[in-house]
């Protein structure tokens, strides 16, 4: 059995990322789409941490720290937007939000 190395972590990260992307494409509830976005961010975090460990330095981890903060801010704003949208349209379903279409 081979030893667990960088590529293992990166593979997990890639799979998780694609899982999130698939969720964004396939799910139709805005909230769930948001959760899938979080999954994708986390996949990126994992890759960063793995590289940080591989290179024996902390820059990657600092980046993850930043990402987490940005993600928190993003979630706050995004959820506020969803709430505002829901108040106006009584739905959080993307198929009902097509008023931009001609």
């Amino acid at each position: 059995m081979m030893k667990v190395g960088l590529e293992h972590y990166l593979t997990v990260s890639a799979l998780l990322f694609c899982l999130g992307l698939f969720g964004v494409i396939a799910r139709r509830n805005l909230l769930v789409i948001y959760m899938c976005l979080e999954l994708m961010l986390n996949a990126a975090n994992l890759a960063f941490v793995a590289f940080s460990r591989f290179n024996n330095e902390l820059n990657g981890q600092v980046m993850v720290f930043f990402i987490v903060t940005v993600a928190a801010a993003e979630v706050a704003v995004g959820l506020a937007l969803i709430v505002a949208l829901y108040r106006k349209r009584q739905t959080a379903h993307v198929e009902d939000l097509t008023s931009m279409k001609l």
């Binding site: 789409i33 198929e95 939000l97 931009m100």
Partner: peptide, 8 residues
């Protein structure tokens, strides 16, 4: 036609 307005 490509502008379906659908997020998906």
């Amino acid at each position: 036609l490509a502008q379906s307005g659908s997020l998906q």
